[in-house]
Design a protein around this nucleic acid. Sequence first.
RNA 1: CGGGCUGUGGCGCAGUUUGGUCAGCGCACCUGCUUUGGGAGCAGGGGGUCGCCGGUUCAAAUCCGGCCAGCCCGACCA
Length: 470
Amino acid sequence: MDTRGVLTPQNEDFPRWYQDVLNKAELADNGPVRGTMVIRPYGYALWERMQAEVDRRIKQAGADNAYFPLFIPESYLDRESDHVEGFSPELAVVTMGGGRELAEPVVVRPTSETIINAYFSKWVQSHRDLPLLINQWANVVRWEMRPRIFLRTTEFLWQEGHTAHATRQEARDYAARILHDVYQDFMESVLAVPVLIGYKTEAERFPGAINSMCLEAMMRDGKALQMGTSHELGQSFAAMFDITYLDADGKQAHVWQTSWGVSSRMVGGLIMAHGDDRGLVVPPKLAPVQAVVIAVRDAEGVVEACHRLSGELAAAGIRARVDDKTGSGFGRRATDWELKGVPIRVEIGPRDLEQHQATLAFRTGGEKQTVNLSEVPEQVEAMLGRIQQRILSDATAWRDSRIADAGTQAEVREASSTGFARIPWARLGPEGEAALAEDAITVRCLQRPDGSLPHSSGEPDLIAVCGRSY
RNA sequence: CGGGCUGUGGCGCAGUUUGGUCAGCGCACCUGCUUUGGGAGCAGGGGGUCGCCGGUUCAAAUCCGGCCAGCCCGACCA
């Protein structure tokens, strides 16, 4: 009656474990069209929490939400050559509408640079209109060859920010600000996923960008997952879509732009960064349910006590929920909540009630402990804070133990079998990068030796962080 | 699109070599009773034109032909 066998162990078959978690924690199903997914209520609740936290930070960074159409004229994509080259193979194109062939096919957006910039050109006239800071939450479609739920699906959910600035410096600074203040802060303080930040190499750059910054996380199998990107687009879209303004000296100038996004892929990252053989581990700050109050058995007063306590937890600002489905055995329900990664279970049975106490059980670390009923809210609150910290520090220590310094390509290959390798970019170079690519090892990012974000990807003495990726 | 593999109740599979005795197992689901402090037990029950089309045969999940779909590895990717 232990929980072995509920999930395929990670070290036995990691992809299978991932699939098991998706099913058993009721996160998502495959959709009927290849590469699509049905996000189930609990999986969607995780996404909604991510959205709320990211959205708040985006607004603090000064960007406003707007919404642009799903359909884009095919000709828009053609305007930027790198961009069209990058996305053409994975476009979904609509040629019929209303039962008739369309005069011009429309594409389902794979990203919205083109249509948003078409409108930026109308909205930007003067330097007083700058900076223009727009974000949208949307679904996008990229016809992927090998889909995987949350990590790479044909349709996915994301936010995409698009901005226009007067100078290159201002655009670069804003892209970096989003990277740090929105994405890195969210991932580390809410998701408790430590990220490596840096620039993409030219080979890995976003189609149409002059520079791509990124955040890379390590999954429990040692592989990398790109959690988010922030791009400097330069002036190419401004030129193609004629986004010009009159500067203070009365001269026409093109704007400098950025775009940046994080997606429902982060749900997959969350699963694979923290999950263990008992299921998902959700850090308290993200958790849709931070504490579940479980009625152990339907004995006198137990269910009532659970609802009362849940109300007190909610009043203390804790996202709490009651499990009074005593028709199912206790073990079954405890395991189900564990699979869903709920940080704290507050168990109340007749024995507890007799003693005016509850039993606290923790998803990660620590023994069960009994707490006087009146002290449960403050205890839970304090523990949630500690759990949040420990999940991040554990993940960081674990990741760092799997990053090795390398001096040769052979050493990079060696280290990439279990984690990441760090090698001076000057030593590896684009030729070494291409050679590693044949073994599915890529440069995840270029960063300064101390791990900080360089001012550009051309800075000397950069370190290339290499690994296998999703 | 290249290479390998697989299609049998919701999920995972056995059965195909040697055609008949084959519509079967585990989990899940439904009903009842007993249970409930770490995935409960017993009893009963519902659900599948065996991917599709055609052929061979007295007889096809099983043999033959064609088609379709999916999975894994590669190129692509938030």
